[in-house]
Amino acid sequence: MSTAAVRHRLARLRWYVRELTGEAAYDRYVAHTRTHSPDAPVMTRRAFERSRTDAREGDPRQGFRCC
C-alpha cells in the first residue's frame, strides 16, 4: 500500500472519529457564523460546548440525563 493510500485512509478515519464524537460540530458552527454573520462574535469552544450540553439536557426528546 502506498504512502498516499495510507494517508488517505488515516484522513478518512480521522474525519469519521471527529464526526462520531461531535468534535467537528464546533468547526461547522464557526464556518457557518463567519459565512452568514461575519460581524457577529464567535463563541469560544467552551461556550459552544456548554450551549450544546444545555440544549441537549433541556430537550425532552434527547432523553433524561440523571447524572
Score class of each variant (00 low, 15 high):
2 S>R: 09
2 S>F: 06
3 T>G: 14
3 T>W: 08
3 T>I: 09
4 A>F: 06
6 V>M: 13
6 V>H: 08
7 R>Q: 13
7 R>E: 14
8 H>Y: 13
8 H>T: 10
8 H>D: 13
9 R>M: 14
9 R>W: 09
9 R>E: 15
9 R>Q: 14
9 R>G: 12
11 A>M: 11
13 L>W: 07
13 L>I: 07
13 L>D: 10
14 R>Q: 12
15 W>Q: 10
16 Y>V: 05
17 V>W: 00
18 R>P: 00
19 E>T: 07
19 E>L: 12
21 T>A: 05
22 G>Y: 01
23 E>Q: 07
25 A>M: 08
25 A>W: 01
25 A>I: 03
25 A>C: 04
26 Y>M: 04
26 Y>T: 03
27 D>M: 06
27 D>C: 09
27 D>F: 04
28 R>F: 05
28 R>A: 15
28 R>P: 04
28 R>W: 05
29 Y>P: 03
30 V>F: 01
31 A>N: 05
31 A>H: 04
32 H>W: 10
32 H>Y: 11
33 T>I: 13
33 T>D: 05
33 T>R: 15
35 T>G: 10
35 T>R: 14
35 T>W: 06
35 T>N: 11
37 S>Y: 10
39 D>G: 08
40 A>F: 00
40 A>T: 07
41 P>K: 01
42 V>K: 00
43 M>W: 05
43 M>R: 09
43 M>A: 09
43 M>T: 01
43 M>V: 02
43 M>Q: 09
44 T>Y: 01
45 R>V: 06
45 R>H: 05
48 F>E: 03
49 E>P: 00
49 E>A: 09
50 R>V: 11
50 R>I: 12
50 R>E: 14
51 S>C: 09
52 R>N: 02
53 T>Q: 12
54 D>P: 00
55 A>W: 00
56 R>A: 12
56 R>F: 08
57 E>A: 10
57 E>F: 06
58 G>E: 01
58 G>L: 02
58 G>W: 00
59 D>A: 01
59 D>N: 08
60 P>A: 04
61 R>C: 10
63 G>V: 04
63 G>A: 02
64 F>D: 13
64 F>K: 09
64 F>M: 10
65 R>P: 04
65 R>G: 14
66 C>M: 12
67 C>N: 08
